[in-house]
Nucleic acid binder design. Structure first.
Length: 292
DNA sequence: CGGGGTTCCTGGCCGC
DNA sequence: TGCGGCCAGGAACCCC
């Protein structure tokens, strides 16, 4: 399930493939989650940025006479600020790829294609999502009101203005369980179930804790950052469906200490890890290292 | 407006 | 072999 390290891996790999490309046609699954994909037709892609788990494709109007703006003389619109954004959330099983095959919708070669964008040079950018938990939106640049979690998204994990005291204040503003807060994307952006379990395990904090003091908040912030940075270094975690644009898998799944290891011995103290549903999400932790 | 519950989806796996 | 039942879960959505 793509969290920040996976989404960032996708962004870094995909951006050089699509920067400057002009969208000439598109098609999408009829679900409201994907149906707005064709609104990107007629735009050039200025680049891809990321906020939390959201991919933001910058779009500028390519103009009727600019099938490919880059080789034209004069100012290149893709070097200026984007006026719209194509937003893609990968959900649980989403992946983005680029290929050369002409297509219709539905794609008879892959029933899980949910949207595709033809590019002026003959390639096609396409979105594959088995379980349809992903989402696509085209909005005016910076107008994220239609995506509440993005609109209210907390700071990026490596934002230097995010420090222990700020993280602690943010956590202290709510009495919800610490793990639920991490998953809410409000105190910090980009953490999902895997890295929440990993960071809490490293920090020795019980996932159901409702109060975390300043020292432990600072410790947790450091571990969230470490866990995310290490996962990024290892290309993300592939449990089943996660793939990069070039179809390769991540390698971080071999480095998990906590997530998915319920019943197996804790790597610090050998106590069997336990798991239980907390706020409708599976949580795994060490009952000894992460005592209440 | 924070928080709680519900819903969207389908492949993989388990037990019979 | 076939199949019903269950599980995984990010975020929108609805409601109080």
């Amino acid at each position: 399930m793509p969290e920040l390290p996976e989404v960032e891996t996708v962004r870094a790999q995909l951006e050089p493939l699509v920067r400057g490309a002009v969208v000439t046609d598109a098609r999408a699954h009829h679900s409201a989650k994907f149906a707005s994909a064709p609104e990107a037709i007629g735009s050039a892609i200025t680049g891809i940025t990321r906020r939390g788990k959201y991919l933001l494709f910058g779009l500028v109007d390519a103009g009727p006479d600019r099938p490919d703006p880059v080789p034209h003389p004069g100012p290149d619109p893709t070097q200026g600020p984007a006026d719209r954004e194509l937003i893609v959330h990968l959900g649980m099983t989403g992946a983005l790829h680029v290929d050369n095959a002409p297509r219709r919708y539905p794609n008879e070669r892959d029933p899980y294609e949910r949207a595709s964008w033809d590019l002026a040079d003959g390639r096609t950018l396409w979105f594959r999502d088995i379980r349809r938990f992903g989402r696509i939106a085209v909005v005016r640049a910076g107008d994220h009101r239609s995506l509440p979690t993005l609109y209210h998204l907390g700071p990026e994990p490596f934002d230097p203005s995010l420090d222990g005291p700020r993280f602690h204040r943010s956590l202290a503003a709510s009495r919800r369980r610490i793990k639920t807060q991490l998953l809410s994307q409000r105190p910090i952006a980009g953490v999902g179930n895997i890295y929440a379990d990993e960071a809490l395990w490293r920090a020795g904090i019980h996932p159901a804790a409702r109060r975390v003091g300043p020292d432990r908040a600072d410790l947790l912030l450091g571990h969230v950052r470490d866990v995310l940075a290490e996962a990024l270094d290892h290309g993300g975690t592939t449990l089943r469906d996660y793939r990069t644009p070039d179809h390769s898998t991540g390698r971080n799944q071999f480095r998990l200490d906590c997530y998915g290891r319920s019943g197996q011995p804790c790597r610090r103290c050998a106590t069997p890890l336990t798991s239980r549903e907390l706020d409708q999400r599976t949580a795994t932790w060490c009952p000894t290292c992460q005592a209440h």
